Amino acid sequence: MLSGITTSLKIGGGQAIRDYLAAIDDFKKEPYVDSERIGAIGASYGGYSVFMLAGVHEGRFKTFISHCGLFNMESWYGTTEELFFANYDLGGPYWDRKNAKSYQEFNPIKHIDKWNTPILIFQGGKDFRVPIGQGQEAFQAAQLKGIKSRFVYLPDENHWVLTGHNAQVWQREFFGWLKETL
């Protein structure tokens, strides 16, 4: 059983985010873990999770990397080419009052006031599932808050990095960021 976060604690992002935080709290207790050098990294839903964690982690992480993550659920709903996930996961459009919790409590942009940790953001220019604006909004917010941040835009990639050259760029940026911020 994971400890550290109780299910009654109100954490934006819901049970998945509470589980991540509880797992990190337990993981940090292991003797082989350098608890001063922990980062959160994720792509797609994991990228969304990174943006959520950035607003609720309370100092657990030293750095973040998000790849094609959802940052602003309202703007995403209006720009994604795949509404199935938005309608299924969020309950439908943001203007429907019954979905208010999804667009408030589970929306990373609503927790930006607590962002204070370095973040690297990857975004593909041909990602129509998670359009470029999601990464741009997150990067802009980090920059305006004075947070160490970098935006890596891969104009020829979609939700995945498929070309050899761009994979090398991605790897160089990824590992360079970890070396620099951990």
Rank of each mutant, 00 (worst) to 15 (best):
Gly69Gln: 08
Gly125Asp: 12
Asn158Trp: 11
Val50Ala: 02
Gln15Arg: 12
Thr7Gln: 13
Phe71Asp: 02
Asn99Glu: 04
Tyr20Cys: 10
Asp127Ile: 13
Asn87Met: 04
Ile5Tyr: 08
Glu81Lys: 15
Ile65Trp: 05
Arg37Ser: 09
Pro93Ala: 10
Gly146Cys: 05
Arg172Leu: 10
Glu157Asp: 13
Phe175Arg: 07
Glu30Asp: 05
Ser49Val: 05
Gly146Lys: 08
Gln143Thr: 14
Ile5Lys: 13
His67Pro: 00
Gly39Phe: 02
Tyr45Gly: 08
Ile17Thr: 09
Asn99Lys: 10
Glu173Met: 12
Tyr77Gln: 07
Phe61Ala: 04
Pro93Lys: 11
Leu21His: 01
Val33Phe: 01
Leu21Glu: 00
Phe151Asn: 07
Gly164Ala: 11
Ile5His: 06
Lys114Trp: 09
Ala16Glu: 13
Gln168Ala: 11
Phe51Val: 02
Glu30Leu: 10
Tyr153Leu: 15
Gly146Trp: 09
Ile132Tyr: 14
Ser149Tyr: 07
Leu9Lys: 15
Cys68Met: 06
Glu180Ser: 14
Ala40Thr: 00
Gly55Glu: 01
Gly55Ile: 02
His57Lys: 05
Gly124Gln: 14
His111Ala: 11
Gly39Pro: 08
Thr7Ala: 10
Leu144Arg: 14
Ile109Asn: 01
Ala40Asp: 02
Leu21Cys: 04
Asn158Ile: 06
Lys179His: 11
Ser44Gly: 13
Pro108Gln: 09
Tyr77Glu: 09
Gly135Cys: 09
Phe151Asp: 06
Arg18Ile: 00
Ile119Gly: 07
Val50Leu: 05
Ala100Asn: 03
Ser149Glu: 06
Glu82Ala: 12
Leu70Asp: 06
Ala86Trp: 01
Asn99Asp: 11
Ile109Ser: 07
Val169Leu: 15
Val50Trp: 03
Val130Ala: 04
Leu144Glu: 15
Lys110Asn: 11
Thr80Lys: 04
Tyr48Gln: 07
Ser49Thr: 14
Gly14Gln: 09
